[in-house]
Design a protein around this nucleic acid. Structure first.
Length: 305
DNA sequence: AATTGGTCCAACCGCCTCTTC
DNA sequence: AGAAGAGGCGGTTGGACCAAT
């Protein structure tokens, strides 16, 4: 079904003399959000066109679905993409390409839209800075052998720093025990799509919120460019051998040669960051601790109670 | 203080696939 | 089997926001 048919269909499903002119578009109002949340709270989601109609929303079913999945859903995780998530996105994109929804499934609480936006605004930007196509082998190798090892380093450093800041907390550490993500001989990137059992929606719902109480969550992507530019041995038009050599010389190359990441530990650490003040992350703090958008969601939740 | 350029992200568009009848 | 309804996905856009000038 093409978009024109789609529009015709969407308007056609709104019975009782409603036509395209009655369909609302653009930003959602607080009132609309409350209606949608209330309706789904009472009746569940799915069958979006009839949902929109029955709820009295002058929106297309698609619009309702998108609003719910990308914004109103209680387990949606807001805030900055963490280092671990960045690493995972890079890895999964190298495997699956622009399969955003598939990638999003591995990042509980993150939406395909969010990941897509991240990729476009930050990753593609740096491909542009490096003057190469984001799909080129050159850029992919740069990601694989320079950027990703750097991310791993920073994740390790953040984990260590967190432990140092508060020794009473039980942070995980990067261990070679779980083959969640590993480089095989510095040339073949091996990873399990299902990252670890800890990356479940249950866990994410308790650790979500995305509030960045710790600046280490936010990775400056300019590092990629710096890293690339400072790497004097990196020949232009290099092949696999050169890339592998680069990996060996990369500060974190050793990790990829023989190490793995313990994402369970990462997740635990990440959850601690989310908590920020050391308190227990509850569903309430999930709603209230993620910045402006979460304040708004908290307000909406209050309307339901 | 005003302007400009860059970034971020919610929302929409168009196409495709799946489901139902 | 085929048509229409419905949902899902990736691409794109517009505007709000912010930092630099």
């Amino acid at each position: 079904m093409d978009g024109n048919k789609d529009r015709m269909f969407d308007s056609g499903t709104l019975h009782g003399g409603e036509d395209d002119a009655d369909l609302r578009r653009g930003p959602w109002t607080v009132e609309e959000d409350i209606i949608l949340i209330n309706y789904i709270h009472n009746h569940g989601d799915g069958r979006w066109n009839s949902l929109a109609r029955c709820a009295g929303l002058k929106r297309t079913g698609k619009s309702c679905r998108l609003r719910w999945l990308n914004y109103l859903r209680p387990d949606v995780r807001r805030g900055n993409i963490t280092l671990e998530e960045q690493l995972l996105i890079l890895e999964l994109h190298s495997r699956w390409g622009n399969r955003w929804s598939k990638i999003a499934q591995q990042l509980p609480g993150r939406t395909d839209n969010e990941i897509k936006n991240y990729w476009r605004t930050r990753v593609q930007k740096h491909a542009k800075q490096l003057k190469c196509d984001v799909n080129s082998k050159q850029f992919k190798d740069t990601m694989r052998y320079l950027w990703m090892p750097r991310l791993v380093e920073r994740i390790q450093a953040a984990s260590v720093a967190s432990t140092a800041v508060d020794g009473s907390r039980s942070y995980g550490s990067v261990t070679p025990t779980q083959p969640a993500l590993m480089m095989n001989g510095g040339s073949d990137f091996v990873s399990t799509p299902q990252v670890t059992p800890s990356y479940t929606s249950e866990n994410s719902s308790s650790g979500g919120g995305g509030g960045s109480s710790d600046g280490t969550q936010v990775s400056s992507m300019s590092e990629l460019t710096d890293c690339y530019n400072n790497f004097s041995c990196f020949p232009s038009g290099y092949g696999q051998d050169a890339a592998a050599a680069a990996a060996l010389q990369s500060p974190a190359g050793g990790f990829f040669n023989e190490g793995t990441l313990d994402f369970q530990a990462m997740e635990q650490s990440s959850c601690e960051w989310m908590a920020g003040d050391g308190g227990v992350v509850t569903s309430e703090s999930l709603w209230s601790g993620a910045g402006d958008g979460a304040d708004y969601l908290w307000f909406l939740q209050q309307q339901l109670n």
